[in-house]
């Protein structure tokens, strides 16, 4: 019954960033640009943003000045493909079409670097997922995936990160699992990684199959998570255990 009360209490509460569940020292590491290792990728992204690439001989910076606020609004609807697109996907698309440059694979270092450079420009801004009704079906599928039990351990995202957030799995505090810090520097990875990588972690953790990076299932989950964490500040590059 104690748990039921806890659940009811959480349902009414505001979303809680994983930052609030970290030690004072990790919070300080995240907040300090001179100690946050994710800033190494940020700096690389800044350099890549200025670099001319591809047959078009254009740099990102030739078209884009400030991208403040952009990351807070992704994933968005992409009319060209009539599908949702996340920030990394948008950068891939821009690179292919505007720069006519060789594709950067998901989770590659340059794509993570460019993504975190753009995402950081929204640091401190509230996650504001677009209300575009065309996103609604995919977002609903994402919510269904979030609540779907899977894998040999037969657990859903929601069972841990919604119904049992704040409790301890072994010694690890279960966070609410919000998507406001990506790409993030995860100490476990000793590297920067995307939300898709983190989702993949959980899927394999419950001994389930994990779709390939870029798969529609991830986009759908990303859409739902953006809605679920609406209002939380963008923290990219967040630091997480």
């Amino acid at each position: 019954m104690r748990w039921l009360l806890l659940l009811l209490g959480m349902a009414a509460a505001q979303p809680r960033s994983g930052t609030q569940d970290m030690s004072r020292e990790l919070q300080a590491m995240q907040a300090d640009d001179s100690a946050n290792p994710g800033m190494l990728w940020m700096q690389e992204g800044e350099a890549l943003f200025q670099r001319r690439e591809g047959l078009a001989g254009k740099a990102c910076a030739d078209c884009h000045a400030s991208l403040a606020g952009v990351a807070a609004r992704y994933p968005a609807w992409d009319p060209a493909t009539a599908a949702p697109i996340d920030l990394a996907g948008r950068i891939q698309q821009c690179r292919a079409e505007r720069q006519q440059a060789a594709p950067l694979p998901r989770e590659s270092e340059p794509l993570l670097a460019l993504t975190v450079f753009v995402a950081r420009q929204s640091r401190g801004m509230a996650l504001a997922p677009p209300a575009d009704p065309r996103l609604a079906p995919a977002r609903a599928r994402g919510e269904a995936l979030f609540r779907q039990r899977r894998g040999q351990l037969n657990l859903s995202c929601a069972q841990c990160h919604e119904e049992r957030a704040g409790l301890r799995l072994g010694s690890a505090l279960i966070p609410e699992g919000h998507a406001n810090g990506y790409p993030q520097y995860r100490l476990e990875w000793q590297a920067l990684g995307s939300l898709q990588r983190r989702l993949r972690n959980c899927m394999v953790g419950v001994r389930a199959t994990a779709p390939a990076y870029g798969a529609a299932e991830y986009l759908e989950l990303e859409l739902f998570l953006a809605q679920r964490g609406a209002g939380l500040p963008v923290e990219a590059p967040a630091v997480r255990p």
Binding site: D33, S34, M39, L40, W41, Q43, E44
Partner: peptide
């Protein structure tokens, strides 16, 4: 070249 961040 490895990426380096220097703060001073």
């Amino acid at each position: 070249m490895a990426r380096v961040l220097l703060n001073l």
